[in-house]
Simulated assay, not measured.
Amino acid sequence: MKTFLDKIRGRTRVLISENERAVHLAKGELQGILGPGEHSLATMRGTLVIERHNLAQPQFRSDYEKALFDKLPEVAERHLTVVRTKPGEVAVLERDNRVHTVLGPDERLVLWREAGPWTWELFDTEADPELSPKLMRRLGDARQTQQFVIVPVTEGSVALLHMDGVLTKVLEAGLHAYWKAGRTVTQRIIDLKRQSLDVTGQEVLTLDRVTIRINLSAEYRVADPVKAATEVKDFADTLYRALQLVFRQHLGALKLDQILERKGEVNAEAADKIRADMAMIGVEVSDIVLKDVILPGEMREILNKVVTAEKEAEANVIRRREETNATRSLLNTAKVMAENPVMLRLKELEALESIAAKVDRLTIHNGTGGLMNDLVRLRDESAA
């Protein structure tokens, strides 16, 4: 019955639920915003337009937004909330004390008031670009990380923070966060722990024109990260090239025999030059070791022959010396026996005993009597 009467009177009924709002127009003009309930509206000869909005989507998006704020500001103020940021500002928007979204610089967001309550906080990213740890964690938990950069720095390292290509700060170990705010934020991690650098297979031409290969090792640490990162492109590569150049110059001025005699030793002057050069770029070099000197195959064979000849000569000298000592010992023994017949006879008995131990049968042609008589005679002679 109501519907029939409404048609006669040129009206229509519009039902708006609790989770909806509606913008309505008649004859192309904004009439207002409809709240929840049943509304009887004039059809205006079929020109009535109803634009429904679900509050589950709290942002107000409509082609009639500008007209609404210009022609019906009181209606817009009653139903809508506007959040606006300036250049260099960031707004953290909360809905019912929970992070809803983050607005970047120079942005504008229109929200339904009834979808709130809404609160927000503005941050001047130019005056203070760093986020507090508490805010960083809140935004991270809400997955609203699009407006800032997280810089993790591990223990034993530092990070060089650059904003728009300019070095801004040296960050210690920890978790840091910075607003992007329309700028480029980058970081470079510098390891401060002691490290080793190996230079392997470097060819060097000695003073006597022998090509050798050497292996070097150096221990270093970054003492000044700012200098190490800004003075040169790559401080590790700079140290590598310094070791190459200095040791080529140093070893190239020595003969092969001199290098082999001092294998494992590092020239103090060469090491001091490397340390001084690297200290100028903030790198502290401690130990420098010449680990290996590798000879070409032909040179190894020649040196092996030389060593073999030297060892054979040494062995011959030792052999002659021992033979001389043995001969001298025999001569001394002969002199003692010549001067002492009893000693000579005892030696004969020792020899006889040794022979008897090695044979099954021993025949004495002189007889045991003759042997004993000889022993008695020897005893009498020694007594006289």
Results as ranks from 00 to 15, higher is better:
Pro133Tyr: 11
Lys134Leu: 05
Ala159Lys: 11
Phe123Gln: 04
Met163Gln: 07
Leu135Met: 15
Glu126Tyr: 10
Ala159Met: 08
Ser132Tyr: 10
Val158Leu: 13
Val158Tyr: 09
Lys134Ala: 15
Asp141Ser: 04
Gln146Cys: 03
Asp124Phe: 00
Glu155Pro: 02
Glu121Gln: 14
Val151His: 02
Met136Tyr: 13
Glu130Gln: 15
Gly156Ile: 02
Asp141Pro: 00
Thr119Leu: 13
Met163Pro: 00
Asp164Thr: 07
Ala159Asn: 10
His162Thr: 04
Glu126Val: 15
Thr154Tyr: 10
Gly156Ala: 11
Leu160Ile: 13
Ser132Ile: 10
Thr119Trp: 06
Lys134Tyr: 03
Thr125Cys: 15
Leu135Lys: 13
Phe123Asp: 02
Trp120Lys: 01
Arg138Ile: 03
Val149Cys: 01
Asp141Ile: 06
Gln147Ser: 09
Leu131Phe: 12
Glu155Cys: 03
Glu155Asp: 12
Asp164Ser: 12
Ala159Pro: 04
Met136Arg: 14
Val153Ala: 03
Phe148Tyr: 12
Ala142Val: 11
Leu161Arg: 14
Met136Glu: 14
Leu161Phe: 02
Val151Ser: 02
Arg138Gln: 15
Leu135Thr: 11
His162Tyr: 12
Ser157Gln: 12
Gly156Pro: 09
Asp128Phe: 07
Ala142Pro: 05
Arg137Ala: 14
Gln147Met: 07
Pro152Arg: 08
Asp141Asn: 07
Val149Phe: 03
Met163Asp: 03
Met136Gly: 03
Phe123Leu: 09
Ala159Tyr: 11
Glu121Pro: 01
Asp141Gly: 00
Val153Asp: 11
